[in-house]
Design a protein around this nucleic acid. Structure first.
Lengths: 267, 267
DNA sequence: CACACAATCTCATAATAAGAGATTTTCAAT
DNA sequence: ATTGAAAATCTCTTATTATGAGATTGTGTG
């Protein structure tokens, strides 16, 4: 039963699975926007499981409804996922406590307001409201956001502890540079410090051309960022004063939600 | 390592888990609309796992993002679920091929059009469009539907093989009776046969008072139902002829989708 | 009908989940 | 700070069981 030599350590984040429990769940990790369907053959190759083992896993995951098979002998995510998301929506304190605030924001401005969760080095939209007719930058629930660009990413990164922040800057230096946050890692870090001082981040057309993003972090009681509140609005609609006004509102909402004490770590 | 005596058989649907792989996934099964949060203590009691085992499972599921912990020492479904649903939405052939048809239906009628998947004795909305301002019966994605009432349930049940149908009738006889499908199991079965002959089902205010539901099944190539297309509209807006017209359209859409050959069994 | 392919089965063995109880962490309250 | 109670993790041995090679059965297509 040889298993590829894995240094004996507690599996964290995106580490090679070290027990059968993690290996089953690793199957779910292969699905991405780029690759929504997998054949058994490809899964075997990609995951390095033997044929019987893979089929055993697939059977279990299919029985659980997490996967289903398309008839061309390939698998996709299954209906249980849909059901769980429905339940997740109703248990997520960020969604529950945040949504009314988003509605208030979209009532006040012709914009797009959303809350995005920070988890495992990803930024994920969990709820989104809109009052702008044709603003393209509407991120739907579940859509991951890029880390290197946009007000949202910055509003979160600025509040990360140094040890957590530095590798992220390095990994996304190209993007961060291209939006003018600084040429070196150190310069970018200084920009982040300024964001932190301001309490919010603003981005002009970094994610969507012509759209302005204004974001403030939601912190847990330890001051660790767990999410971000963001308003996007077409650049033509706002001037400096307008942005200041919106920023104040966004910060207020983020603080409101912070005190509700959403939920704990995924570090 | 005593494990509660389980008759040695292939675990199907909602059968007691018989191996550690299934036991981890069983944790995900406990979450429901009635119980969105669980404490470790309750999980131990409910699932019958020992403390170390449960915590091992929770750790793995949290690391995978499928669960997360609220600070009052309880767990809820996690952000990975949200991300997977987003991906599932883009890989589901029913959603992809069906959505344009739904938009066409909502353009033609002031109504609510949706597609619901049949899986594991559940009916689950996977995509829903609406052009009616204030129709309450809008089932959102992920929301399970009752089996005993409504056009949707009937449009699917009518196409189930006898062996599959009978237990369902028995389990839901009270509801089925109350909407007038017959007093006995046999009478209900006859009603189902009539639905099958018609190719669609109609329900007047069975799920939502004042709303009419018109549903037709989506069948796979073997003739097994895998989903249902449904239009709901306020009763005041339609007469008999109107319903016939809508029914024809709904059937047409269901057939369109059927030929695309959505995907295979979850039996 | 036969072919290719997908999925499942058999079985011996090595690998590893499991559990009892101790230990460490976490967090609230003083 | 200090304590104390609850939560989470760790240790370590043993019995359980997950695993893979290969054979076999199932499935659908020309």
């Amino acid at each position: 039963m040889r298993r590829i030599g894995v240094t004996t350590d507690h599996a964290s984040s995106d580490m090679k699975p070290s027990n059968s429990l993690e290996r089953v769940l690793a199957v779910l990790e292969v699905f991405s926007e780029e690759r929504l369907e997998w054949t058994s053959e490809d899964l075997m190759a990609h995951l390095g499981y033997s044929r019987p083992t893979l089929y055993r896993y697939l059977k279990i995951l299919k029985d659980a409804g997490l996967l289903m098979s398309s008839r061309n002998a390939s698998v996709t995510l299954g209906p249980k996922v849909v059901e769980m998301d429905y339940l997740a929506r109703r248990s997520d304190t960020l969604v529950l406590s945040g949504q009314p605030h988003l509605k208030a924001l979209t009532a006040r401005y012709s914009c797009n307001a959303m809350i995005l969760r920070w988890y495992g080095n990803k930024i994920l939209c969990v709820v989104s409201e809109t009052s702008a007719r044709n603003l393209v930058s509407s991120y739907p629930r579940g859509r991951p956001m890029p880390l290197g660009r946009g007000a949202i990413a910055r509003s979160i990164m600025a509040y990360l502890p140094r040890a957590r922040l530095m590798p992220l800057i390095e990994q996304n230096l190209d993007d961060l540079r291209s939006v003018g946050l600084g040429m070196s890692v150190e310069e970018v870090r200084q920009s982040m410090k300024r964001v932190r001082k301001a309490g919010y981040a603003v981005a002009f057309g970094e994610v969507t051309a012509g759209a302005v993003g204004i974001a403030a972090p939601v912190l847990d009681d330890r001051g660790v960022p767990i999410a971000s509140v963001c308003v996007t609005i077409t650049g033509a609609q706002v001037d400096g004063a307008g942005i200041d006004r919106i920023a104040a509102d966004v910060k207020a909402v983020a603080n409101e939600i912070s005190v509700v004490r959403a939920d704990s770590d995924n570090s």
